[in-house]
Design a protein around this nucleic acid. Structure first.
Lengths: 221, 221
DNA sequence: GTCTATAGCCCGATAGAC
DNA sequence: GTCTATCGGGCTATAGAC
């Protein structure tokens, strides 16, 4: 009688080089140490095995607590997922809207798009374990929480679309199909959560620069 | 006590326009009608709710059978997933290697790459529900079955890499980083399983042509 | 705030009649 | 090959001691 089997246990995950990232620095400042530890454990479990294959025991074991201790810090497993997904979406949106990030490469539509793509891509690489959960585990959310996340995603998408539409309007870019190009550029950054690892050949910044270069080729006149 | 809740039931899924695709024409000819019906029901459930959130009751209800009937046709839920994932990977590999598909656009490295990208992309769009399961539900497989699928994926990746490396070697393309460009092109096609729907603005063939165009811009001299 | 113990439910899979 | 009924067991979440 085959039961829900997580392919990897919390113990194995803690030492897996594929799951090394900077997610533990992501959580909200208001949270306590134990809460942040539980989120870091949960994000690894969810990323490796999926939300529904992860048990509350897995999450708690990852920080050396009993299963019941989780419920002192979070009211349910779904709210652990929601905290992870909401934090990730808020952080990446804030990051790409950061004026110092946006103006780093200089003025003009091309520099602006380059900066946005590089920032969005390198963020996903740097936090690829949490980003994987944000991108691929949305089906574990309740309908209400899912709607909240969709609203944040629409803001992010609009930000990309505007950066591309601006360059197309001022003649910096070719007359591209903005909707289709926007989706293609988002796909490049989002899909890296399936394969990226920090100990691979590209640093987050290198990959961000490479994808920014590809993006500019997509819209070149 | 919140239980494993699938956000959508099999009944809702059958009429959901987002889940319309051509997966029912995908299954192996040796299989019987009931088996193929179960696979079509399962692929919708897995795509919408995930493998672990789907129960054998959900799958069976989708074809009007009792939960026990599933086990006459498949030995376990995991083998239903494996049949779907293996069939999808074999079909898409055969499709991009089809000589009539490859030579459709004419000779030369650029036409070859264009044909491969267009075929791979349009296949994922046409079968986006099954393709979503193939790309995003691999964690539900046993370790042994996962290894079998990885082998098929390596063959597909090698086929892309060769098409790009050939154009870089014969001067048709710029001296690109073949490994990184291969991943980027695969990402474009794979990530569409998250958002594509057949009743959207692009047909599978239109999207295939568009992404083939983007791919050629990525390697343009 | 942590633990042990367990309630209460649901799930994958099986037994056995038809 | 389909059904009804159910087993065995794991799951989320809670109760209550410390």
């Amino acid at each position: 009688m085959a039961k829900r089997q997580a392919r990897f246990t919390a113990q194995e995950l803690a030492d897996d080089p594929r799951l090394r990232d900077h997610s533990s620095a992501l959580w909200r400042e208001e949270l306590g140490d134990v809460q942040r530890g539980l989120l870091t454990s949960a994000v690894r479990c969810f990323a490796a095995n999926g939300f529904h294959a992860t048990t509350t025991r897995d999450i708690a074991e990852g920080v050396g607590l009993s299963p019941a201790a989780l419920y002192v810090h979070f009211p349910s497993k779904e709210l652990v997922l929601f905290e992870i997904v909401r934090t990730g979406h808020e952080r990446v949106l804030t990051h790409i809207q950061d004026p110092s990030v946006l103006s780093a490469g200089g003025d003009g539509s091309a520099n602006r798009l380059r900066a946005v793509i590089a920032a969005y891509t390198s963020w996903h690489a740097r936090h690829h374990v949490a980003a994987r959960v944000c991108q691929l585990e949305l089906a574990g959310l309740t309908a209400g929480h899912y709607e909240e996340i969709l609203e944040l995603r629409h803001q992010t998408n609009a930000f990309f679309r505007d950066a591309i539409a601006r360059g197309a309007a001022d003649g910096s870019f070719a007359q591209v199909d903005v909707k289709r190009v926007t989706r293609a550029m988002l796909s490049l950054s989002i899909d890296l959560v399936r394969w990226y690892r920090l100990d691979g050949s590209d640093s987050p910044e290198e990959l961000g620069e490479f994808y920014a270069g590809l993006a500019l080729k997509m819209v070149a006149r």
